[in-house]
Structure formats: C-alpha cells, structure tokens
Computed example of a mutant assay.
Amino acid sequence: MINQKIKKSITNNSEELTALRRKLHSEPELSFEEFKTTAFVCEYLDKLGISYRKTEPTGVIAEIIAVPGGKTVALRGDMDALAVEQLNKHVPYASKIDGKMHACGHDAHTSMLLIAAKALFEVKEELPGNVRFLFQPAEEIALGAQSMVDQGAMDGVDNVFGIHIWSQMPTHKVSCTPGPSFAAADIFKVKFKGKGGHGAIPEACIDAAIVASSFVMNVQTVVSRTIDPQSPAVLTVGKMVVGTRFNVIAENAEIEGTVRTFNPDTRDHIEKSITQYAESVAAIYGATAEVEYIRGTDTVDNDEESAKLVQQVAAEAFGSDVLFNEKPTMGAEDFSAFLAKAPGSFALVGSGNAEKDTEWSHHHGNFDIDEDALATGAELYAQYAWAYLNK
C-alpha cells in the first residue's frame, strides 16, 4: 500500500518543508486576508507544473489529473493565522507582524500539503486516479471551507482527507478514529430589556443585571439536568455587557456564549432550551428577552472506512506504534463542510515535545510545533491519497 517513491521524496525534501513552514510562519495573514499566502502557493505550484485556480477572495484549488474522469481524492490544508501577539519572539522565524501569528499550525498544514503535492506529482504517471489540493482560507472564522465548497471545491470528489497538527499529542503520533472528532459549534446571543433608573430607587426599576445574572446561573442546568450525561455538551457564557454607571440600575444587558455538541438531537434541544430559559427568566422579573441562535460548524464525523484507512496507512508508513487514540475534542473545525459533500476523515498529527517547548495550547502566544512532525504530516497526506486511489 505504501509508495516508496513518495516516502523517499518526502525525506529528500524535509529541509525545504521546514523552510516553507518558517517562511509562512513569519508572514501571517488573517482570515480572508491571505493574499500573499495565496500568491506564494500559486508560485510554488507553477514551479511544480500543477494546474490550479484561485478562489475568492483567497484560497487555491489545485489538481493532479492523472486519469480524466477517474476517482478523485481531495486533500485539505488551511492557511490563515490568528490575531494573537507572538510571545516566543526568540525563534528565528517569529512573526514579522505585530498582533498576528500562526498560533494554530496552519502554516504547517500549508507547507505539508505543498510538499505532499510535490511528491504526488513525481509519481503522477503511476496514479490510478486524481488528487485535488484544497488550500483553504478562513478556517479560524469557520467560513473558509463552505466558501470553497460554494466555489466548486468538492465537485466530483469521492473522498476528502485533512490533517491538523496537534500540540497535545507527542510528536509523530497519528490519531484518526471513526466517529465524531470535533464538535458542532454554535453561538447564542441574548438581549434582556428591563427598566433603568436611579440606584437608590430599585422599586421603580427592572434591573437587567439581575435578570442577566439569573439567566447565566440557571441556563447551566440545561446541560447538567436536561441532557443525557452520555451525550457530551458544553454551554459557555463568554461575554456579558450590562450597565453604564455605578449608581444607575441597568436597563439593558447583552450576553453571548457558545454551545458545543456531538449529537444533533442534543444540539436542537439546547437551542430550544436557551430561548425558553431566557424568556422565562425575563418574565419572572417583568423584563423582555430577545434570543439569536447562530449555527456554526457541524460535527467533524470521521467515516469509518476512511478513518481505518488512515490508521492502516500510518501504521505501514511509520510503524504500528505511531497510532494514538486521542479523545474527541469540543473544539470546532469547518472541515465538516467538506465532509457534508463526500465521505472522508480528519487526522491529528502530534507535534508536542517538552524538550523543544512545543506543548503549548493552540491559540497561545507561545504556540510552536516540533518541526520533526512536518514530514510525518506531509507523508500522511500523500500516502493516504495514494492508498485511497489504489483501493
């Protein structure tokens, strides 16, 4: 199943792979602002001779067509950075832009996918099908994948595969289990309106601060008392804005939060319950409530056959001890938009190494990766495509 030419190509290009990642890391761009990154990817593909087209406003869809009309597998790597200040400025590839940083590993994903494309193009004549490369923008705002889908990224695709570098796993380890791996992620916003007035005359007012506080405390029981404990769910209130002055009773309060679930029925139940709780709490105090529930990314649900193929490919490429069983995370990933169009799977490749100080959480200003993991990811991309097309 493993192609030795691909393995050799990845090994021979490991230094270039690291150089690509360091260049991208030093020049981060935010979601839908990845214009230089898009241009860089296009220039690299031009040198390889791989055809591509740009998506709007950013992003690239490239393709190796070895068998016109044949089976097609898509490989996805995201490109955007975060509005995070880099704290580990001592590294030689530190961000050159204040307040922007590749704090999640997307620089690694893009560079790994470029080297995977290079390795697959070298065996183009042996490919029994086609490989599409999705250099995706705007994953961090959960809009890039759907944007690419809307622009034809998944047209004619039979299977899709993605990778995320994972600092919570040891370097080189690979995890890809069937079933949910990343949660569905939604946003809710609640506006309470009471009756403001002087802080010394509470009996003439309806205190929106009391209403909002009561809601925050009570809404937690949606999960703790109305959801099956074996159906994981998280409801977090992350923002509350209320009041204008120390001696003025608040008339308005605004709350924002997030809901994370794996089960669609649980998701529906929580959405309905948030509205019920908000309206009921408001009614107790004589206030009113306005609720907005925004559905974000869906669950990343790994297809069983695809996930098992990833495990088989990883074991044959790197040895069976590379396999790792990382538990599902309540984090979100818009890779789910691709899975809505074709079966596939999403793997985690470990990059955590205490000796290299690369175990920091994703999105932290000290985040970094053990660059030894880059070759693992690049080869996993390429070998998976080879294995899938040769099934």
Rank of each mutant, 00 (worst) to 15 (best):
Y93A: 10
P180N: 08
L389G: 04
N3M: 08
K124Q: 12
T37I: 02
G69I: 03
D186Y: 01
T38Q: 06
N130L: 07
H172K: 11
Y285N: 11
I294T: 14
L374H: 00
L380T: 04
V281H: 03
V219P: 01
M169G: 00
A184R: 03
H164K: 12
G162M: 02
Y381P: 00
A253E: 01
G197W: 01
A39S: 13
V216T: 09
I369M: 07
L113W: 02
T55S: 13
L75H: 03
E379C: 05
K7N: 08
L87V: 15
A385D: 01
D321I: 03
N13Q: 14
D372A: 13
K47G: 15
I64C: 07
S213C: 14
A337W: 05
W386M: 05
E15I: 13
I294M: 11
I206E: 04
D46N: 13
S351F: 06
I61C: 10
G319D: 11
R132D: 00
V160K: 00
S147A: 15
A209H: 11
T244L: 01
T72A: 08
R260V: 04
K239Y: 06
A287V: 04
A204N: 13
E34W: 14
G352E: 03
A208V: 08
E355N: 09
P68S: 12
I187N: 12
I227Q: 14
A74C: 10
E33A: 14
S167T: 11
F32D: 12
F335R: 09
S280G: 15
V60T: 12
G352K: 00
K100C: 11
G286M: 04
I61V: 15
Q276F: 13
F246G: 12
V91A: 10
E122W: 00
A287E: 07
P92E: 12
A116I: 10
A283V: 06
R22N: 09
H106N: 03
G243I: 01
T358L: 06
R260T: 12
A138D: 05
I284F: 11
V313K: 09
P137I: 11
S175K: 08
G296C: 09
F182H: 13
N390W: 07
T288F: 05
L82Y: 08
D155H: 10
G105N: 08
G331A: 14
D321G: 09
Q276N: 12
C205I: 06
A81D: 09
P57M: 12
M101D: 06
E43Y: 00
V84A: 09
A39V: 11
K8R: 15
E256C: 04
I2W: 08
F338E: 02
A278E: 03
